[in-house]
Design a protein around this nucleic acid. Structure first.
Lengths: 335, 335
DNA sequence: ATGAAAGCGCTAACAT
DNA sequence: ATGTTAGCGCTTTCAT
């Protein structure tokens, strides 16, 4: 017994109304110039009148391409990734691809789960926001023969395409900037301690060691970053190392939170304590005093990722590559 | 001539390896208890060994259900919506649904485009973050016979399910709180001026009028909200109405930006000027002074939206409803 | 320029 | 408990 149709308007409905076969309608949608003008106009009219919405699942099943790309970010609420997302989204949309977003909660296991899910949805490519993955995730990606872009940080062994910046070099640069500015008892505070934060910490150590300074003033926690945590970490540090004259916070949220805590304590920034953040979020340029930070090219990373993946989707051969997008130090009022 | 297969592992491959038919494998995945234990174990082993990933497009095409729900938010970077998103995501994931997110950029035309796109992807339902849509979008949604939840604000004519809070009443409540606290020359500053902001403004007017106070101190702009804009609007207001003793900012970003501007001007908050925001973002509880604000139950809205849509997806009949999730006023140091 | 036929990988319906 | 058959809506291939 035939299963009843879903009631949705299909290519066949358009075809019948116009009096052509459904291949012609399909063709009209994909290669309008291959259909005669008269037929084209009538098809377009029918589509309009019937409110036809193509069934992408059927299209994808048949063609093997879904015209969608998965973008996996650690966190939705972290504004750091929303800029990357915008760049990716814009670039891919222009090329006719839909971006499907997922968030991993900073967990590579969750990333693996999402890769599996999106493979099941038949995405044509992946943009990941890290270079660290489970073995299984890597296997899945390799077998799928899909273009993959790993973003944010750089790696020597990209799965495929890698677009980011050297987090360690950036950490070192901000450390050096603080040293150049005359600070000598420089602390580091970090939350979450994901790979990128660890790299920034290593960079900070590089800078201090190279200058012969102590790297003992280091306060870290696995807890997720927040404004309040920035305040808490700063308080703990002031207690342990009252002589500290500057702090590099692993990200801008912590830096802003630390600044608020200084205000609460009536501690003059930068007079009594200098503060620096990382990423260059909007808030760093709005507080009083404004915050010194490392500006990361998040939008550009997203755009470049989109550009490269589109190239591949349009047929360019696989060619593992690494793209260093650099960073800028913004020296502001807090140092 | 037969088209060559995609090379992907399919149900058929599993079936052949185990020596059963593919329906049995399919059944094993969906209703394991209906398959004999021995066969089940062998199927599970084959799936593991071959790294089988089901093709959801084929499944959805065949069954008419994609096990996915679209969530449309105005902005990815606005943390207001990330809480909603978490609630939705969590609830839907538990029920076995994947959330596909899109952002409209506060444009109902873009919303319409996304509704079209996600209908093409065959989603089983929609969570929207407004009650305002284009006529065409409403038509599309009605014809699709899919569960739809409109969130954030309340409406008298829900498309289907409506979960939110009365933005106008909330605006009035914060206005009244300021009046109760003794302020009399109360300003309003608003950005973007989307529907919700307009409602908050109307509520603020309600409160001031009811108390016989002037509503002239109102500074608005269509520009998108940001910390810096909060500072700019405040500056403009101080210039126009130097006697102003309190400002209700339409959201927390503006309020924080206004606070930073006060710090820059060495204006004592709340001594010389009181500030209030809207939403209850983390930052309002981190600044110095902390910010008075309206706490909106964003997480709860998301969870409730998920709960209700899952009910419908599991067969509950359509039953238009409105769920007022309320709000709380947090009186903090800035007033 | 247009169409007929086959098939993408899966599930629903109906046997056995 | 398992299998057979048909078909979801589209695109591809090949023919006209």
């Amino acid at each position: 017994m035939p299963r009843r149709s879903t009631g949705r308007v299909t290519l066949q409905d358009i075809a019948e109304r116009v009096g052509v076969s459904k291949v012609t309608v399909s063709r009209c949608l994909r290669e309008p110039q291959r259909v005669s003008e008269t037929v084209r106009l009538r098809i377009e009219e029918a589509i309009e009148v019937l409110d036809y919405i193509p069934n992408r699942q059927a299209g994808a099943l048949s063609s093997g391409r879904s015209l969608s790309v998965a973008l996996l970010v650690p966190s939705i609420s972290n504004s750091v990734f929303s800029e990357v997302q915008r760049g990716v989204d814009e670039g891919l949309r222009e090329a006719g691809y839909q971006v499907l977003m997922g968030h991993t909660g900073y967990s590579i296991l969750e990333e693996e789960r999402l890769i599996d899910t999106f493979l099941a949805y038949g995405v044509d490519g992946f943009v990941l926001s890290s270079t660290r993955h489970t073995d299984h995730a890597q296997r899945l990606l390799n077998r799928a023969h899909l273009p993959v872009v790993e973003t944010m940080e750089l790696t020597d062994n990209p799965l495929d395409i890698n677009v980011g910046l050297d987090q360690r070099v950036a950490g070192r640069a901000i450390g050096e900037a603080l040293i150049t500015a005359g600070y000598r008892r420089i602390g580091f505070c970090g939350a979450r301690l994901d790979y990128r934060v660890q790299q920034r910490l290593a960079g900070w150590e590089d800078a201090l060691k190279a200058a012969g300074l102590s790297t003992q003033r280091c306060q870290t926690t696995p807890r997720p970053s927040s404004y309040r945590l920035g305040g808490e970490l700063l308080s703990a540090m002031l207690e342990r190392w009252p002589d500290m004259d500057a702090v590099f916070c692993c990200n801008d949220d912590l830096a802003a939170g630390a600044l608020f805590e200084c205000q609460r304590r009536r501690l003059d920034v930068p007079g009594q304590l200098a503060l620096a953040g990382f990423n260059g979020l909007d808030i760093t340029d709005a507080t009083w005093p404004t915050l010194t930070t490392v500006i990361t090219p998040r939008r550009a990373i997203g755009e470049q990722a989109a550009r490269l993946i589109v190239e591949r989707l349009q047929g360019a051969p696989r060619n593992p590559s690494r793209h260093d997008m650099g960073f800028d130090i913004a020296l502001r009022q807090s140092t």
